[in-house]
């Protein structure tokens, strides 16, 4: 099973669970199965801005995005972009 790791805020919103196992074929399917899917993905089903995802060390925005295939031993790291103190308001 692939493993999806969440940052602290999303983990809390997922009921305190930081890691999720997934047998999804693609990153998009794995994220859509999470209880925090609507915090990772926007209403168009795209990755939210300032949410970055690395699959086995590679930033998916430079690659296949949500279509990135997952292997049985893939490590998916969801992180919040380092926005340098940019205010949310």
């Amino acid at each position: 099973m692939a493993v999806v790791k969440l940052p602290a805020l999303l983990a809390r919103e997922a009921g305190g669970q930081r890691e999720f196992e997934s047998d999804a074929a693609t990153l998009g399917d794995a994220l859509r199965a999470l209880p925090v899917r609507n915090l990772c993905l926007d209403e168009h089903g795209e990755l939210r801005r300032l949410v970055n995802v690395f699959v086995d060390g590679d930033d998916v925005r430079g690659g296949a995005g949500l279509e990135t295939p997952l292997r049985a031993d893939s490590k998916v790291l969801v992180v919040t972009a380092i926005a340098g103190g940019q205010s949310s308001r």
């Binding site: 805020l9 609507n38 915090l39 919040t80």
Partner: peptide, 8 residues
């Protein structure tokens, strides 16, 4: 509520 990725 608003966070780095948007609002809810």
């Amino acid at each position: 509520t608003n966070f780095f990725g948007g609002g809810t």
